[in-house]
């Protein structure tokens, strides 16, 4: 297949179209505005739904409405604006709607800046909405993965009727790489038994989260958590790089893994036994893999472009079996290959 040179933002948008996205609803924010720009043209060409929403709050609720009818719908946004969507994400999780949200991280807190950052790991995996719920989170580290994981986001959202976040960052969104646009590889999931399509030849259906009776609310949340258990058992995805016999395993997610790999190559050349574990699904988190590796490695080093967010999940997974160190910088500070290699060497000395 021929390769195309494209940015992360355009790759995500084109992949969403290939995945059969019926509706895009969005509001601009750097560094992901190109997704909405791309969609405004393509969706109209294809006569699919596109709305320049008046706010991110409106955008996510338009997606809620569209998805309640079984449509494949999405929005995309960034950091402080994804914060605005948290209430609806809680509703969407409770309603079990197959919503896809592309979250392209910029630096925070507050307005922060448009530099790349990974400061929204907690926002994506823990969330700011109310109540007990979980959102599937996929983290690409290359533009090709932006395509593959956009496909997977739509698939998992439909398969589990669960909101799914594609968590990218400004670096991936804006950089160009040669990619292959393969076809959407997943089967279509039937919406027949739940979607709102009009009460014709069947009983009327309602999708809502209000639970006026205590028992019903308890049962609903337990049903949700049974589903989350299935997701945790079936959908964990990660990349392992040179972990065999590694004394130190560097662990990271998203774009920074590119530099981590280069740093590992440098360190391997110097004879250091170092490898990498990169969670691709941030939820479900590859807890079992960490526990397995903790039996053979001496130490973990978590590297993030933030002040230490995923490291908490790593520590919970490793559960004290071996030390878990952290190295990171926030507010858009890029960690170079040299920075990372130096930290690996420091921990090895």
């Amino acid at each position: 297949m021929t390769k195309t040179l494209t940015t992360g933002n355009h790759a995500i948008a084109q992949a969403a179209i290939n995945a059969g996205c019926d509706g895009y609803f969005g509001y601009p924010i750097t560094p992901q505005s190109e997704i909405g720009e791309f969609m405004s043209k393509k969706m109209q060409e294809l006569e699919r739904a596109y709305v320049c929403a008046e706010s991110e709050i409106a955008a996510i609720n338009m997606v809620l409405g569209a998805c309640s009818t079984g449509a494949k719908a999405m929005t995309s946004s960034s950091s402080c604006a994804v914060a605005l969507m948290q209430e609806s994400l809680s509703y969407i999780a409770a309603d079990e709607l197959p919503v896809v949200l592309v979250s392209v991280m910029r630096a925070g807190p507050g307005l922060g800046y448009i530099y790349p950052s990974q400061g929204d790991y907690n926002q994506a995996t823990i969330g700011g909405g109310n109540g007990d719920y979980k959102i599937i989170v996929l983290a690409p580290s290359t533009v090709q993965e932006c395509i593959d994981l956009t496909y997977k986001s739509f698939y998992l959202a439909q398969k589990y009727r669960n909101p799914t976040i594609l968590l990218a960052d400004g670096l991936l969104a804006q950089m160009m790489e040669p990619v292959e646009f393969n076809e959407y590889p997943y089967p279509e999931i039937s919406i027949e038994d739940w979607a709102l399509t009009g009460a014709k030849n069947r009983d009327s259906r309602a999708i809502y989260s209000l639970g006026p009776q205590e028992d019903r609310l308890v049962e609903r949340v337990e049903t949700l958590f049974n589903k989350y258990k299935q997701i945790e058992e079936n959908e964990v995805e990660f990349e392992e790089y040179q972990t065999d016999n590694a004394d130190l395993i560097v662990t990271c997610f998203g774009s920074i893994a590119r530099n981590v790999k280069s740093a590992i190559n440098q360190c391997r050349e110097k004879g250091l036994k170092v490898g990498m574990l990169r969670p691709i699904t941030l939820y479900p988190f590859p807890t079992k893999k960490y526990q397995e590796l903790a039996k053979t490695t001496k130490k973990f080093l978590t590297i993030e472009m933030n002040m230490g967010q995923m490291v908490r999940d790593v520590r919970l997974a490793v559960n004290g079996q071996v030390p878990v160190e952290f190295f990171g910088k926030s507010v858009g500070q890029w960690l170079s290959v040299e920075d990372i290699a130096a930290e690996i060497e420091r921990l090895n000395s």
């Binding site: 019926d22 739904a49 955008a59 338009m62 009327s204 309602a206 999708i207």
Partner: peptide, 29 residues
């Protein structure tokens, strides 16, 4: 609790967002 009374399909929107949700429903249907 409109869905408890109307015998039609019905989706609940968060507070204030009914017309955003309605927009999403109508534009895709």
């Amino acid at each position: 609790m409109l869905y408890d009374y109307l015998d039609t399909d019905c989706v609940e929107a968060p507070h204030g967002r009914a017309l955003a949700a309605a927009t999403g429903v109508k534009r895709t249907n």
